[in-house]
């Protein structure tokens, strides 16, 4: 245990910069994931014929083991953080896409018809009815995506993109258990921390009238 604290203190700079890299990778991946999956999720509710195939494709990506996906991408994109980001984005897409779609499709048809019948435009229905009512689902999807991404980002080290995986990998190579732990513990805390924060936001995002 002492050994572990010594490692923490001695390698402080390295750990912090790896942590920041890790947060950066996860954060950017989730942000881009949202930027793609949210609008796409909305679009496929308007063209439901394409919804199943599109969600299906992202689900297939999801089933590729993460290490294998990194392996596929390297020959195409080379080594570096873009490769890691793209892999992470691919994993972030599905939960956000699926929840956005399910959240909007799940809005009671009679509520939407009331809106239409009262003369709301499609944009007004989307913004004032569908999105607010789907928001808890969408937030839950973002939360899942974030936790997933924080975990998978440990593999970024294999494509030279840094992150806490670096530390774990280094520890493994040098049979230094304390160092492995010094990398793994922050990953776990990061995942739990993000999860809690997003859980709180999710709760706040639930429209007031639905909380009863």
């Amino acid at each position: 245990m002492r050994n572990f604290f010594d490692t923490l203190i001695n390698r402080q700079d390295m750990i912090i910069s790896a942590l920041l890299e890790h947060i950066y990778l996860s954060f950017v991946a989730v942000a881009i994931g949202i930027a793609i999956a949210l609008p796409l999720g909305i679009v496929i509710t308007r063209y439901r014929r394409y919804a199943e195939p599109i969600i299906g494709v992202t689900a297939v990506f999801q089933t590729i083991p993460s290490l294998a996906l990194f392996g596929f991408l390297v020959p195409i994109l080379g080594i570096g953080s873009p490769t890691a980001l793209i892999a992470l984005i691919i994993y972030a897409l599905l939960p956000i896409l699926r929840n956005t779609y399910a959240g909007i499709v799940g809005v009671d048809g009679s509520t939407i018809e009331a809106g239409r019948g009262m003369g709301m435009t499609r944009t007004q229905i989307l913004r004032q009815i569908e999105l607010p009512l789907a928001l808890p689902f969408i937030m839950a999807g973002i939360r899942t995506a974030t936790v997933l991404t924080v975990g998978i980002a440990t593999l970024a080290t294999f494509v030279g993109a840094g992150g806490l995986g670096d530390i774990i990998y280094r520890g493994l190579q040098s049979y230094n258990n304390a160092l492995v732990l010094a990398g793994a513990l922050p990953v776990a805390l990061l995942a739990i921390g993000f999860d809690q924060i997003l859980k709180w936001i999710e709760k706040r995002a639930t429209p007031k009238g639905l909380k009863t």
Binding site: D108, S110, T111, E113, A114, G115, R116, G117, M118, G119, M120, T121, I129, P132, L133, P207, K208, G209, L210
Partner: peptide, 22 residues
Amino acid sequence: EVQLRRSIGYVIQRIGLFPHMT
């Protein structure tokens, strides 16, 4: 159609109040 609907009151079968609005 949007203008027309705004000028006609509509009570739908199954009420259809917006649950997230007061």
